[in-house]
C-alpha cells in the first residue's frame, strides 16, 4: 500500500486516512463496491454485533441472582442506560429504551473495536453516523407530531419570550432543530476519525529515528485519550438522543 511504500522511503508523506478506506474483504482492492458487497465495514459491524450478543445474550444466559462477571457488566450497562433514559427523557420515554440501548451499544462497541490496531472504525464514517443521526431525527420528529400533533410546533414558538421576538426566535429554533442531525452525526464521526488520523500521523513520525521515542509516547498518550473519547462520544450521542426525545415528548420550553 501507499503508506508502507512511503514509510520505507523515509519520506514524511503520510496517508493517515488510508485506514478509513472501504474495501471488499474478498477479491481485489480495486473491485467495485456494491451495496451487498462484503467489505471491511461488514466485518467490523458483524464483530460489534457478535460482541454485543456475547455480552448480553451469552453473558446473561445463567440468569443468576448472583451475577457472573460478564452478566454483571451487562447489568451495569443496562442500569446505566435505563437510568439515563428515565432521568433525561422522562418515564414515558421508557418504551424507547431498547432503541436507545441498541444505538448506545452499537456506537460503544464500534468505537472500542475501532481502537484495536489494524481494525476498521465503522463509526468514523459520516455515512454511518449520518444514518444513525437521521434515524434519531426522524424518530424524534415523528414521535413529536404523533404525541402532540400541531402542539409539537410549540417547540419553536417560545412563549416565555416577548411577542415581537418570537418570530425571530422561531427561525433560530427551526434552524437549530434542523442542524441537530448534522452536528449529531459529525460530532461522533469527526471525533473518531480525527483521533485515528492523529494516531496514524504520529505512527508516520515514528519511522524517523530521531523523534520516534516521542512519537511512540505520543501514540500511547493519544491512544489513552481515544479510549476516553470512544466512551464519551458514545455517551454523548446517546444522551443527546434522550434530550431530543424529551423535546419530542414534552415540547414546552
Amino acid at each position: 500500500m501507499a503508506t508502507e511504500a512511503n514509510g520505507e522511503e523515509g519520506g514524511l508523506v503520510f496517508h493517515p486516512l488510508d485506514q478509513f478506506i472501504v474495501e471488499p474483504l474478498f477479491g481485489n482492492a480495486g473491485d467495485p463496491i456494491h451495496w451487498y458487497t462484503i467489505t471491511n465495514v461488514t466485518l467490523w459491524m458483524a464483530l460489534a454485533v457478535l460482541a454485543i450478543i456475547a455480552l448480553f445474550v451469552f453473558g446473561s444466559r445463567g440468569r443468576a441472582i448472583v451475577p457472573s462477571r460478564t452478566q454483571s457488566i451487562g447489568e451495569i450497562l443496562y442500569g446505566f442506560t435505563y437510568k439515563m433514559v428515565e432521568d433525561v427523557a422522562g418515564k414515558d420515554a421508557i418504551k424507547f429504551f431498547p432503541y436507545i440501548m441498541s444505538l448506545f451499544m452499537f456506537i460503544l462497541f464500534a468505537n472500542f473495536l475501532g481502537l484495536i490496531p489494524m481494525s476498521f472504525a465503522t463509526t468514523s464514517h459520516i455515512a454511518v453516523t449520518a444514518v444513525l443521526a437521521a434515524a434519531v431525527f426522524l424518530t424524534v420528529t415523528i414521535v413529536g407530531f404523533v404525541k402532540n400533533g400541531a402542539g409539537f410546533l410549540g417547540l419553536f414558538w417560545v412563549k416565555s419570550a416577548p411577542l415581537p421576538l418570537r418570530p425571530v426566535l422561531a427561525i433560530i429554533e427551526l434552524i437549530s432543530y434542523f442542524v441537530r442531525p448534522v452536528s449529531h452525526s459529525i460530532r461522533l464521526g469527526g471525533n473518531i476519525m480525527a483521533g485515528h488520523a492523529v494516531i496514524k500521523v504520529f505512527a508516520g513520525f515514528a519511522a524517523i529515528a530521531a523523534i520516534s521515542p516521542f512519537a511512540v509516547l505520543s501514540i500511547t498518550a493519544i491512544y489513552g485519550l481515544e479510549v476516553l473519547v470512544a466512551g464519551v462520544q458514545a455517551y454523548v450521542f446517546t444522551i443527546l438522543t434522550c434530550v431530543y426525545l424529551k423535546d419530542a415528548l414534552h415540547p414546552s420550553h
Binding site: 472501504v22 467495485p32 463496491i33 456494491h34 451495496w35 451487498y36 458487497t37 467489505t39 465495514v41 461488514t42 459491524m45 458483524a46 460489534a48 454485533v49 441498541s102 444505538l103 452499537f106 465503522t122 464514517h125 455515512a127 454511518v128 444514518v131 444513525l132 434515524a135
Partner: peptide, 14 residues
C-alpha cells in the same frame, strides 16, 4: 460510492 454498502450493512447490524 461506498455509502450504499455502509448504510446497508449498518441497517442490517442495527
Amino acid at each position: 460510492s461506498t455509502f450504499g454498502n455502509q448504510i446497508f450493512w449498518l441497517v442490517v447490524a442495527m
